[in-house]
Design a protein around this nucleic acid. Structure first.
Lengths: 235, 235
DNA sequence: GGTACACTATGAGAACAACTCAGAATAACT
DNA sequence: AGTTATTCTGAGTTGTTCTCATAGTGTACC
């Protein structure tokens, strides 16, 4: 029973790709429903209409199958981010879009994200795994926005790039987890985005000259203190 | 061969606890060396000097064993945090200590932290697992510091508590991962802490009314005024 | 001091799931 | 139609967690 309805107008390669896509799609569902260990290869094969051994012709092992699912997720995520910022000029509008897009996509596929975090974040093997590459191209979108902003003088250039990046994505990830734990309504996403962007702006945003803040006044304070010292000892 | 050298002055309960501790200690090493799946129950039992079945008298399953290891880690982490802030009054000194302590402990037991992230962060079952409780008491230390700071008017009260918390721990976790990936030297921890605290200060720090900044100018002004008074009365 | 009893330990093997592989089926090409 | 290359199959192998019937050990009571 070869099944797979060899549709007339299909080349062999097309059939293979269709089958691969079918397996990935079923795997996605099973992983979401049952987690990594709970998803059985037998069930995936069965629901995809192939024998168990066949799955192993397409994917080396269960891990590789999960990787394929995650790869699909990342591709959409990156594409969405790139397209979204194209129409935006303002730095904070861009960052806001990225935060919003990130949260929405991640919450929509939350279970997959959890699986990625669970299985592909060990530092020791991270760099050799494919999610590292996926993540690199995704993060590159954010990095470009930040670099532009620094060049335009809108963000401080005395904070290491990677700190800004970790601040952004770290805060968002934790906020997302809190959001899920609280089972909060979708509207709350705006609260998260607004707050994180606001904090980013206050934290690494550079005030326009003439309205200088924080670090710029410190020397003045120190100078006043030296003056006070002299007056103190004089009087 | 009952072994376990029934030392004369040991009550039965003591021997059990010692044995449990031995199993946990070996498990810790094995998990660190080989990861969760790589650590075999047979190896753990063997190295702890008990039969495989015996381990299951002390821990329901492999998961519970990892949980015990993580529990030990969290207890030390929480204790260290609580003791550390006792001697500190200043809000930012406290936060700085907490950040530093968090990073140092987590980096020291990084592999265990990874395993916790990998296996006990699924939102769906998180609340029923013990790490949730551990984490709750740990985070409570931070929360108290923040609440105090808000009451003292040193932090803004218009940012939700949980956002501040997620900002803090999220940024730190991501920065730690970057740190590990870069294989950065220990000194870099200071860079992380300084930057994150600085960003927190700028982001949620409250400037005294009429003054948008964080480094406080008021004391100097008051001091100068007192000097001016003395000069006035002297002349 | 001996005997009953509850507690603790053991390790062979049951259960289970990922993965393999020799052989069957199918498509492609001549 | 025949030949070859490709794809598929599923019963079986392997490896690991966890169980459980049996055996051992310390404690308490007579």
């Amino acid at each position: 029973m070869p099944d797979a309805q060899a549709k007339p107008s299909q080349t062999r390669r097309e059939r293979l790709e269709e089958r691969e896509a079918a397996i990935v799609a079923v795997a996605h569902e099973e992983f979401v429903r049952n987690g990594f260990e709970g998803a059985k290869m037998a069930a995936i094969a069965g629901r995809a209409g192939v024998a168990e051994g066949t799955v192993y012709l397409y994917f080396k092992n269960k891990n590789a199958l999960l990787l394929a699912v995650i790869g699909r997720f990342y591709q959409e995520l990156t594409r969405g981010a790139e397209e979204g910022i194209q129409d935006l000029d303002d730095t904070y509008a861009r960052l806001k879009f990225l935060a919003n897009h990130h949260i929405e996509r991640c919450l929509a596929d939350w279970r997959i994200l959890e699986l990625m975090i669970a299985r592909f974040r060990e530092v020791s093997q991270y760099q050799s795994d494919m999610p590292y590459e996926y993540n690199k191209s995704y993060v590159a979108v954010f990095d470009r926005v930040v670099r532009d902003a620094i060049n335009k003088g809108e963000l401080r250039d005395d904070v290491p790039h990677w700190i800004i990046r970790d601040l952004f994505f770290g805060s968002l990830e934790y906020a997302m987890r809190t959001h899920m734990l609280k089972n909060a309504p979708d509207e709350e996403v705006r609260v998260i985005v607004d707050n994180v962007i606001d904090l980013l702006q206050r934290g690494v945003g550079k005030a326009a000259p003439g309205q200088r803040i924080s670090s710029d006044i410190t020397p003045v304070v120190e100078r006043l203190e030296r003056i006070a010292d002299r007056l103190d000892s004089a009087v």
